[in-house]
Design a protein around this nucleic acid. Structure first.
Length: 484
RNA sequence: GCCGCUAUCGUCUAGUCCGGCCAAGGACGCGGCGUUCUCAACGCUGAAACCCGGGUUCGAAUCCCGGUGGCGGCACCA
């Protein structure tokens, strides 16, 4: 595929920094990147932006990789699988950055700065109090090479700053259109702590160039970084990259999504019993909508229908109710055998060994589940009758004697059925005529309650088929005993 | 404070570019009804929005101007 007329093949990257578990917002950003790449037959690259040596941890990288795999957002190049533009961890690309850093220093486009943090902080406060946009004063900008060399030798602590040209930076955002920034308000940014410790806004444009990235799709929170990165690109004469800044996911009070309201890491949703296809579908719908109004879409359909230009510009609130509804939809349409496999982590071990029973109960309880985690509480009675209050057996104002009499009547009918014919349809055929005489609620409620020990459950015929004749009769006896 | 982004039902959104097809459509949630022994599922149905103020026009959610609100950023984090 060709990118809007130019002959470059589309190359998209997702560049998380492993300073925490995969965030739900990052998962959405990845999804949009992935969809765009797939749609244009491009390459999808995973790059780990771990220049922050203090906060980056290998286990977070593992968590991110596991999360993306769970969502089935696979990549063509990455730290785990390699590729022709590697390495794919910034911490392993230090030589590359150093080379570019030296070039900038040599060309006098960057310089060493020896200002102390305290000094800088004071400057910042002073500017803020004057109502100015805080930026570096440029104090060390014109230090001679000799002078700064001397200071470095002496061991004075320093950083490397970029000489930000005071110009207007304009770019065309694929989602928002023309965006302008006045770079003179930015000031000389720190691009590296030293030759071996580059910072984000420097490492990013270098890698994007080296890896031949064509489009950057990222969160709106990166908008103010874009002019900085463009300026670095211009300093090296790198080719232009297209940008798209996604609206943010917001908490219910429109603030940034935080733990205060909801789980923020993708893994928590997995642990809470959400299916990966639910998450993908839901995340896609946060800020985007298909033209045909179809809301339940799988990955393939998303690739087909997704359109970057149709993405919303304003932030989107994370609507947990819709997520639950979607998950319920996916649970309902997933095959019960498959579901039995997925539900393993949410149930006691002894349920797992009764595979047949498990599949049948899943089939019976499917439409009541919002998450996989719901199953345990919903279906426990199939595995073991809970100890319940006799009052549960009571239908409206029925007397205990009457309830017991009805249960005995049912028991007599049921024990005469051949075990082979103990199935839902047949049981219904035998019991339903009796309700014409004795009343539906009068018969069915106590029956169902005796079988489940619950006020709410699937229907009695369904339960009896799953339980089988022996267990059914046993539970009726238990109920009759409780009533006397 | 400064810079940037942004604004349609409670929420996700369609419609905005190219004004009339919009007495604003869909989905989640909420209410009602139906089905029903219960819960759920399902079907039908109801309430619910163009941020405000001007202007242009026969006509504005849509175009123009001015406000206001929300969000993001302003690190030797990414």
């Amino acid at each position: 595929m060709i990118a809007d007329g130019s002959k470059k093949p589309i190359r998209i990257r997702f560049a998380p920094s492993p300073t925490g578990p995969l965030h739900i917002g990052s998962a959405r950003t990845t999804l949009f990147n992935w969809l765009f790449a797939k749609q244009h037959n491009g390459r999808f690259i995973l790059r780990v932006d771990d220049t922050d040596t203090e906060r980056s941890k290998p286990e977070y990288e593992q968590n991110i990789i596991a999360g993306l795999k769970w969502l089935e957002l696979n990549w063509d190049e990455g730290p785990d699988i390699g590729g022709s533009y590697g390495p794919y961890r910034q911490s392993e690309r230090l030589d590359i950055y150093e080379k570019y850093l030296r070039r900038l220093l040599d060309e006098n486009k960057a310089y060493y700065c020896f200002c102390s943090k305290e000094e800088l902080e004071e400057e910042r406060k002073a500017m803020l109090s004057q109502g100015l946009s805080p930026k570096y004063s440029g104090k060390c900008r014109n230090l001679s090479k000799e002078e700064s060399g001397k200071q470095i030798e002496r061991g004075d602590s320093s950083v490397i700053r970029f000489k930000t040209p005071p110009k207007e930076v304009e770019f065309n955002d694929l989602i928002r259109g023309k965006i302008k920034f006045d770079a003179s308000l930015i000031g000389d940014i720190v691009i590296a702590k030293n030759l071996r410790e580059p910072l984000y806004n420097f490492a990013t444009p270098i890698d994007d160039f080296e890896m031949k990235i064509t489009h950057i799709i990222r969160g709106e929170d990166h908008l103010p970084n874009t002019p900085k990165q463009i300026l670095i690109q211009e300093a090296f004469n790198f080719n232009e990259i297209k940008y798209a800044h996604l609206p943010l996911i917001l908490a219910p009070d429109r603030s940034k999504l935080s733990k205060r309201y909801l789980e923020t890491s993708l893994n928590d949703y997995r642990l809470n019993g959400y299916l990966p296809e639910t998450i993908v579908n839901f995340l896609a719908l946060l800020g985007w909508h298909p033209e045909d109004d179809q809301e339940i879409l799988n990955l393939q359909e998303l690739i087909q229908k997704f359109n970057l230009k149709k993405i919303q510009k304003a932030g989107a609130i994370f609507n947990i109710e819709k997520l639950e509804w979607l998950n319920a939809q996916y649970i309902k349409k997933t095959d019960s055998v498959e579901l039995a496999e997925k539900i393993k982590d949410f149930i006691p071990e002894n349920w797992q060994t009764k595979k047949d029973l498990l599949v049948k109960t899943i089939e019976a309880e499917k439409e009541r589940m919002k998450t996989l985690a719901d199953f345990k509480e919903l279906a426990d009675f199939f595995f073991e009758l809970p100890d319940y209050e006799p009052s549960i057996l009571k239908w409206q104002e029925m007397e205990n004697e009457k309830i017991a009499a009805n249960l005995k009547l049912l028991r007599t009918e049921l024990e005469n059925i051949d075990g082979m014919n103990f199935n839902k349809d047949n049981l219904e055929k035998i019991i339903m005529p009796l309700t014409e005489v004795w009343g539906r609620g009068e018969l069915l409620w106590p029956l169902r309650a005796a079988l489940s020990g619950k006020r709410a459950s699937p229907g009695p015929f369904e339960i009896m088929e799953i339980l089988g004749e022996q267990e059914t009769l046993k539970r009726l006896d238990t109920a009759i005993t409780k009533l006397s």
